[in-house]
Design a protein around this nucleic acid. Structure first.
Lengths: 225, 225
DNA sequence: TCAAAAGTGTTAGATTTACACCCATGA
DNA sequence: TCATGGGTGTAAATCTAACACTTTTGA
């Protein structure tokens, strides 16, 4: 099997998962204490090494599943990080993925089990190695794409109110938006459908619940929020 | 040195360079014949393995320098490719970089030396392994960013006419643009400065030469073409 | 003299922004 | 009854898109 490139160096390759969620008007990140050296007990993203017989994407999914029990989560590659000294232990290339989840789907008993916490993105503790710069890059990508790709719905439950939608949108972009203008824009998007259902959780009056319909995208219009 | 992660698999990690240029109204890609198996003689991107003691970025720069003799070229990471069977020889993770160069800066004697050709992006021959999908992704990224980042100047000489600028822009986006509207937009961009110089190469009348001034970006305005 | 590329303004339509009040309900 | 979040329209300003002719000069 090692017939062609025998003379070449081999390196450890890891995947690190940036798990983002939204709760309580904040973007949240799942981090845990490293359970082994180097960097034992430092706050860290959750990662794992890529096996010889698994693809990068499979490795990322495996790591995420180990961490969250969740499958079929939206995940995209953020990039590869490969400074020589990025890992204080040994040379490790890390390929970073970001997952967007609805926090309510996360089984919070896993927090204890894995020693994890949801931290606010903007008051995150120092992280192991170059993990903070990975998070920074992921957030930049999220901000760059939130208006042109239907990412935001991954951070929300399947049914959501327009106020929730707007709040997530504002939080990611870091700026306030006029409510009437926002709703006007939403109305032009066929892929955001009003349902007959009413949410009574967050307001006395009740708010209409909406749903994202990806089928009505693609063929017809481009996503543009 | 292998004290922490001994039990973990190590993999070959390569960098592949997508070298893009613009010439004769076309986006061009530098490709060559593979000079070793697997895939000997197939058209391919130029790549190399990442050494234990060099960063990904350094490896990409080294590969590009070997290939072009050029240093200080604009280069950005496109992403990591890691399917199990992507390389028919062995398991190889590839981190792809794209370089944007001014074709005139390229020493064309290197074409023969390395068995390279400039191919039109839209009539590219089949490429080795997954290299075509790498190129596709790079082009998508270029298109996505050409309007919001000052990438385009890397494809042009330091002094350029507005017709050249517009032509590159149209080619990357794959759509025609109204000349007067385009020039109106350029005039609002402080970072594109008119010089006193006149280009007599491409027209009898002569055209004003412009220059990109990155210093006038950043602080003042965002790039938006 | 003519072909080829450079250069230049105006107007209609579309999009974006700013802005404030009434509604329904549970506590 | 009142505090809370839900819901709604209009007008001004800005931005975008469509459009055609004159200039210069080398061949």
């Amino acid at each position: 099997m090692t017939k062609f490139y025998e003379s070449k160096d081999k390196l450890h390759v890891a995947v690190d998962c940036i798990v983002l969620g939204f709760e309580n008007k904040k973007l949240k990140l799942l981090i845990g204490r490293r359970r082994f050296d180097p960097g034992k007990n430092e706050w860290s993203l959750y990662g794992g090494f890529v096996g010889h017989d698994e693809s990068l994407k499979d490795a990322a999914n495996r790591v995420l599943r180990e961490l969250t029990g969740l499958n079929n989560i939206y995940m995209r590659q953020v990039g590869a990080f490969g400074s020589i000294d990025r890992d204080p232990g040994e040379r490790v290339i890390s390929v970073v993925y970001m997952a967007l989840i609805n926090v309510a789907d996360y089984d919070s008993s896993l927090l204890d089990k894995y020693g994890l916490i949801w931290t606010d993105i903007d008051s995150m503790p120092p992280l192991f190695s170059d993990h903070a710069s990975m998070v920074k890059k992921a957030i930049e990508q999220l901000r760059d794409r939130i208006s042109s790709e239907p990412l935001i719905f991954n951070l929300l439950p399947p049914l959501f109110t327009l106020s929730q939608l707007q709040l997530v949108y504002e939080t990611v972009l870091g700026e306030e938006i006029d409510k009437r203008n926002f709703r006007k824009r939403v109305k032009t998007m066929l892929s955001i459908e009003k349902t007959e259902l009413i949410d009574k959780e967050t307001s006395k009056r009740g708010a209409a619940l909406y749903r994202f319909n990806k089928r009505s995208l693609g063929d017809t219009q481009k996503f543009k929020l």
